[in-house]
Simulated scan of single mutants.
Amino acid sequence: MRRIDAIGIGFGIFIAGGLAYLGLQLFGLDGQQAGIWSQALLVIGLMGWLATYILRAVGNKMTYHQQREQYETAFLQQRLDELSPEELARIQAEIEQEDQSQV
């Protein structure tokens, strides 16, 4: 996310809070009650966003983690494609030998 995106999101939330306050006043609440309820909506929204963020972080579903996995997979595939058939057969034999010695 770019810095301008973060600023835009923050400004959008600020505007949404003000509109919620005005909407609650138009709905019939006095200024103090409208302020309390608009703040409550903001806190509930923030807690919901935080919960989704924590779930993504714990589940390794963050963009950086996914990009890193894709890069590592592509890098290893490229290295595998560069191996000659003799080198590939030698590596496979070594892996099979290690598997048999562990059993």
Rank of each mutant, 00 (worst) to 15 (best):
Ala16Met: 05
Arg79Asp: 11
Leu76Lys: 15
Gly12Tyr: 00
Glu82Ser: 06
Phe14Tyr: 09
Val43Ala: 10
Met62Glu: 02
Gln32Trp: 08
Asp30Phe: 06
Ala34Lys: 02
Val43Phe: 07
Gly59Leu: 01
Ile7Tyr: 02
Glu86Ala: 10
Gly18Arg: 08
Gly31Gln: 15
Gly17Asn: 07
Asp5Ala: 00
Tyr53Trp: 13
Leu29Gly: 03
Phe14Cys: 03
Ala93Asn: 11
Ile44Glu: 00
Asp99Ser: 10
Leu19Pro: 09
Asp5Pro: 00
Arg3Gln: 07
Gly23Glu: 01
Gln102Ile: 02
Gln77Trp: 01
Met62Thr: 03
Glu94Val: 07
Leu22Thr: 06
Tyr64Cys: 14
Gly31Asp: 12
Leu46Pro: 01
Gln78Trp: 15
Leu42Pro: 01
Ala6Asp: 14
Ala6Thr: 15
Gln39His: 07
Ala57Lys: 03
Gly10Trp: 05
Asp81Gly: 08
Ile13Arg: 06
Gly28Gln: 09
Gln67Arg: 14
Ala6Met: 15
Glu96Gln: 07
Ala6Val: 13
Ser101Ile: 05
Gln66Pro: 01
Ser101His: 11
Gly35Thr: 09
Gly31Tyr: 15
Arg2Thr: 14
Asp81Gln: 09
Ile7Pro: 00
Ile9Val: 02
Gly17Gln: 11
Glu87Cys: 02
Ser101Gln: 10
Gln97Phe: 13
Arg3Leu: 09
Lys61Phe: 11
Glu96Met: 04
Glu87Phe: 00
Gly45His: 12
Phe14Val: 01
Phe11Glu: 12
Leu29Tyr: 08
Gly17Phe: 08
Pro85Tyr: 04
Ile4Lys: 00
Tyr21Leu: 14
Gln33Met: 14
Leu50Gly: 12
Ala34Thr: 07
Gly23Tyr: 00
Leu55Lys: 08
Gln92Glu: 12
Arg79His: 06
Ser38Asp: 04
Gly48Thr: 14
Glu87Tyr: 00
Ile95Cys: 05
Ala51Ile: 14
Arg90Pro: 00
Ile44Asn: 03
Gln33Trp: 08
Arg56Thr: 07
Gly59Cys: 03
Ala57Leu: 10
Thr73Phe: 07
Trp49Tyr: 14
Arg90Asn: 05
Tyr71Glu: 01
Trp49Lys: 01
Asp30Tyr: 04
Val58Trp: 00
His65Asn: 10
Met1Glu: 06
Asp30Cys: 06
Leu22Ile: 12
Arg2Ser: 14
Thr52Trp: 07
Phe75Asp: 03
Ile95Gln: 13
Ala20Lys: 08
Ala16Val: 00
Gln77Gly: 02
Ala16Cys: 05
Tyr71Thr: 01
Ile91Pro: 02
Tyr53Glu: 07
Ala93Val: 14
His65Ser: 10
Glu94His: 13
Ala6Gly: 14
Thr73Leu: 10
Gln25Arg: 08
Thr52Ile: 05
Gly45Arg: 08
Gln92Thr: 12
Ala89Cys: 05
Glu86Ser: 09
Tyr64Met: 13
Glu94Ile: 09
Arg68Pro: 04
Ile15Glu: 10
Gly10Leu: 07
Gln92Cys: 13
Arg56Tyr: 09
Leu22Met: 09
Ala74Ser: 15
Arg56His: 06
Val103Asp: 11
Gly18Gln: 09
Asp81Trp: 05
Gln78Ser: 13
Pro85Asp: 11
Gln102Trp: 04
Arg2Asn: 13
Thr63Lys: 12
Gln102Ala: 10
Ser101Phe: 05
Ala16His: 03
Gln97Cys: 11
Glu87His: 05
Ile91Tyr: 12
Ile36Thr: 12
Gln77Thr: 11
Gly18Asp: 08
